[in-house]
């Protein structure tokens, strides 16, 4: 066992955990905005897949990773808008319409890929950026400060999101609409308007999450996300609708995944038991939630369409 706990190995595991966490983190953050305003979007994975494909395709055609990110964001924005029309204006059942969006994204991204690209062609990846001075700190530097720029941006979005939700008028409106839509409406807050905004933010972040995944991997393939959007939704509950909690959840999930991979590489986990070890990230995420006392509850208007005067 001593092999595992060498610093070099742990440094690699942490760095790997951060990379695995980022797409989950971005998508979960977006979902948080929607849920705080009372809208559950189960279609995150579908939006991620279409964001991933458009990001991939844009980079393939332009060789510019930032245009790829933009493409993912735009497609995500459009799908977020569509989700808002379905959930807010048409007041559809949110859980179920999300499954529809997921299936649509799963099929459509694959169809576009087959028709526009054919076989997987590698694309440019995000450039790595070593943060000056910090990246030179032994171990710490390698773990945290030798990543690509998007990864830093993703983590920077955590305090930004916390600030927006808790300290701005817009954030106050989001919370009001998610908790007391009737009261908010009486006070002149447009419930539908706020929910449109949060769904668009959520869709955009999911689209970006997908694009980040595709451009980080430098490739696209059928079902590239492999269910990451659903894990992101689970992490919103893990993080109790707080950006910092969600970040911790994403890092925990990524860390256990990375650790299991490392233990397999080092053959500390026998190959016969490999599948059992692969359960660990899911089980530990549940257990963590059992053992950390939960003192939070869901926004009370979550999944409830709003009708004035009801």
């Amino acid at each position: 066992m001593s092999e595992v706990f060498t610093t070099a190995v742990m440094v690699a595991v942490v760095a790997s955990a951060i990379r695995l966490a980022v797409p989950l983190l971005l998508a979960a953050l977006g979902e948080t905005f929607g849920q705080r305003s009372g809208v559950l979007n189960l279609g995150v994975d579908g939006i991620m897949l279409l964001g991933a494909f458009s990001g991939y395709y844009a980079v393939l055609k332009t060789d510019n990773v930032w245009l790829g990110l933009l493409a993912g964001a735009i497609v995500g924005l459009v799908l977020g808008l569509a989700s808002a029309v379905i959930a807010v204006t048409l007041k559809a059942e949110q859980g179920i319409s999300g499954i529809g969006v997921y299936l649509f994204g799963l099929g459509m991204s694959d169809l576009l890929f087959q028709k526009l690209v054919g076989t997987p062609i590698p694309i440019d990846q995000f450039p790595g950026v070593d943060i000056p001075i910090l990246s030179d700190i032994p171990y710490i530097g390698e773990m945290f400060f030798q990543h690509s720029l998007v990864i830093y941006l993703a983590f920077l979005s955590i305090p930004v999101a916390t600030f927006v939700i808790n300290r701005t008028t817009f954030g106050m409106k989001i919370r009001a609409v998610g908790e007391y839509p009737d009261a908010a409406d009486t006070l002149g807050v447009s419930v539908a308007g706020v929910r449109y905004a949060t769904e668009i933010i959520g869709g955009t972040l999911a689209g970006i999450a997908g694009a980040v995944l595709a451009i980080t991997l430098g490739i696209f393939q059928q079902n590239l996300t492999n269910g990451a959007g659903f894990i992101a939704i689970a992490l919103v509950y893990f993080g109790a609708w707080r950006p910092t909690g969600i970040m911790l959840g994403a890092l925990l999930f990524g860390f256990v995944n990375a650790l299991v991979l490392e233990l397999k590489t080092l053959e500390i986990i026998p190959r016969d038991l490999s599948n059992l070890a692969s359960m660990a990230p899911a089980i530990i995420t549940i257990l963590a939630l059992v053992f950390v006392a939960r003192r939070f509850r869901a926004p009370s208007a979550l999944t409830k369409p709003f009708t004035r005067g009801k």
């Binding site: 070099a8 690699a12 990379r19 393939q221 492999n226 490392e262 590489t265 490999s274």
Partner: peptide
């Protein structure tokens, strides 16, 4: 020879981290 079965036929991200881990080893 280090062998890493990631226990999925479809998880591209995990396969890429498995490669990182093998290179790290």
């Amino acid at each position: 020879v280090n062998i890493n079965y990631i226990d999925s036929f479809s998880d591209v991200a995990l396969a890429s981290e498995a490669a990182q881990s093998l290179i790290g080893a």
